[in-house]
């Protein structure tokens, strides 16, 4: 097993022991191993270097490696926990963990806050929301007049920015999503519950002697 593990570690930089990863996340050991099957497939789709590049991430999401999408770019940046421009396996598991149906609400709120805090200032600022909104409206070919976008932003900040300082802080965001729970829908991926049945081949490539479920 030692030889196999070191070979895996060599081929997949950032690969951590599945038992350790399972102990730090909502995933079982079997689920971490099933995620590794998925990871192997995505990380070898363009360059077989054991890491997920932005291009490979885009290819997995859009079946098109050149597709640019501001929201997808932001998710890639947040998955790239070590800021290396690539997602290694431990980043992949820890990031997907936030989307697990059993992950804490606090983690989901925290991740969603970072998603919209494009410039990492610790606040969701009006111009960040506007930038994302305009980019996505263009991509979706939905035409809205500038005035309409401003009305939507005015209403949103009137509701969310309780202290009226022009930006949404973490506690205002918590309060806002509690009043608008549909905003957290994108933070839960139900497929993560069935990941072992989606990628059953993990059983043949298991690194652990006894699969803990």
């Amino acid at each position: 097993m030692g030889c196999f593990s070191s070979k895996v570690a060599r081929q997949f930089p950032g690969h951590e022991d599945p038992v350790a990863l399972a102990s730090q996340t909502a995933f079982s050991v079997s689920e971490v191993e099933a995620l590794f099957e998925l990871y192997k497939s995505i990380s070898s789709s363009v360059v077989d270097d054991g890491l997920i590049s932005k291009e490979e991430f885009q290819l997995a999401l859009f079946k098109n490696r050149k597709k640019e999408n501001l929201f997808a770019n932001r998710i890639f940046e947040l998955f790239d926990v070590k800021h290396k421009g690539v997602i290694d396996f431990s980043d992949f598991v820890r990031s997907l963990n936030v989307f697990h149906p059993n992950a804490s609400l606090e983690d989901k709120i925290d991740f969603s806050f970072k998603l919209y805090d494009l410039d990492n200032t610790g606040f969701i600022e009006r111009q960040e929301v506007k930038q994302m909104l305009i980019a996505l409206l263009c991509e979706s070919e939905m035409k809205l007049a500038d005035e309409t976008v401003e009305i939507i932003l005015d209403k949103t900040f009137l509701d969310a920015d309780v202290n009226r300082d022009g930006k949404i802080d973490k506690s205002e965001w918590e309060n806002f999503v509690c009043r608008n729970p549909s905003l957290l829908k994108i933070m839960t991926l139900h497929y993560l519950r069935d990941i072992t049945t989606t990628f059953p081949s993990f059983v043949f490539n298991s690194e652990v002697d006894e699969i803990a479920t």
């Binding site: 979706s140 932003l153 969310a160 829908k185 989606t198």
Partner: peptide, 26 residues
């Protein structure tokens, strides 16, 4: 639903153009 009746974040979710489910080949 009219866009103007949504808050900005709802509109972003609705126009994001993909789902992370796609990662699983779904």
């Amino acid at each position: 639903v009219k866009p103007v009746s949504m808050n900005a974040f709802e509109l972003i979710s609705k126009t994001q153009g993909f789902s992370l489910d796609n990662l699983f080949g779904k």
